[in-house]
Amino acid sequence: MSHLGPGKAVSSKEQTGLRYPSNGKTIYHRPLNRTKTAELSQSSFAYLFSEMVTYAQRRVTGIQELEKRLNLQGHPIGLKLLDLLLTREPPRSQTRPLTIIALLHFIKINLWTHLFGRQADRLEKSSNPDTPDEYMIIDNEPLVNAYISVPREMSQLNCAAFVAGMIEGVCDGAMFPARVTAHSVGGKEEGEMWPGKTVFLVKFQPEVLEREALIGKG
């Protein structure tokens, strides 16, 4: 990076060209907070999302690859929302999540409320002693799947992989590297009431658990 001298501020008024908007308003002139009622239309979202799925589907051969693509589309959104949602917190509770539980609570409450207008339904830790690195975020009725009917031959597919990508982005950004996947569990014995029930399986990297143990001791 080149050394830039002191006070070398460039006045945007003297510049012309595509880099400078004609009305002088840039992204820096817009407020970060938005009013609580500022909601978007679900139908326009559903339309755009169906296009995103089609776009991803046209370029893949298998379901896994399709989910991977949806995941990648969500990842940068998660990275950015992490910082945005933290700045919208009141100054007192503006803290970086340091533990897995704090991070998952942030996702369950802040991220979900921002995206879907409600909290996620449940948060669970894997009861299997072999996989202490697995956590589950459960949504009974994912909003992204509201208008998506998956054909029988693709029953493995869950388009909430897009949301899984966002969760992964939040985890990665906060230095809790993880793999997040979306799984449909509706239709099974306990999922009768919620046919669209989706489990987001968060699998943290071993170093996260290692650090967690160290912090717990300190």
Partner: peptide, 29 residues
């Protein structure tokens, strides 16, 4: 920080990209 968050809100900004906006520089100044 407020201005940094605005900078990363740009859909063209990816993580770890340098911030070259003159408006950002003005704001920091």
């Amino acid at each position: 920080y407020e201005n940094y968050v605005k900078a990363i809100m740009s859909p063209f900004y990816k993580v770890n990209m340098g911030i070259r906006s003159p408006v950002f520089r003005q704001r920091v100044a």
